[in-house]
């Protein structure tokens, strides 16, 4: 079982290759979209690299819960409802949603995921 540091190093290598960023830009707190400049198509690239690096399967809806964010039941006036946030927490236990919860604008969701969230996610998959 890899240590958290080993997982971080592999994720860093994947992000450097996928996003063309420098090693030192990939810090645990860096957000994938805001700090590292990831766009939607980059997530496919990142997922392919992580699946290969860790020999795991990553169901797309676990990392990118678009079905929740586009569901009228969970979104009103561009904001995720309390029920929606609750669903997101269930789906993404590895992500820190506290900041998002304070102002749950759908358009801000993409900027939520950090490198550390990815590390926690991968650790949970590797341990499973």
């Amino acid at each position: 079982m890899p240590t958290e540091q080993e997982v971080f190093e592999k994720i860093r290598a994947a992000l450097v290759d996928a996003l063309g960023v420098d090693d030192d830009e990939v810090t645990p707190d860096a957000t994938l979209v805001g700090d590292l400049g990831a766009e939607s198509i980059d997530f496919l690239d990142i997922v392919f690299r992580l699946e290969k690096a860790f020999n795991i399967e990553i169901p797309r809806a676990e990392l990118f819960p678009e079905d929740i964010l586009t569901n009228a039941e969970y979104v009103q006036d561009g904001k995720v409802t309390d029920e929606g946030v609750s669903e997101l927490k269930k789906r993404m236990p590895f992500a820190d949603l506290s900041k998002f919860e304070a102002n749950p604008l759908v358009q801000e969701f993409g900027n939520l995921l950090t490198v550390n969230d990815m590390v926690r996610y991968v650790c949970s998959k590797v341990e499973a």
Binding site: L44, D45, V47, F48, R49, E51, K52, R60
Partner: peptide, 8 residues
């Protein structure tokens, strides 16, 4: 990498 929805 070869996956159901694409590859690298």
């Amino acid at each position: 990498s070869l996956q159901e929805d694409g590859g690298l």
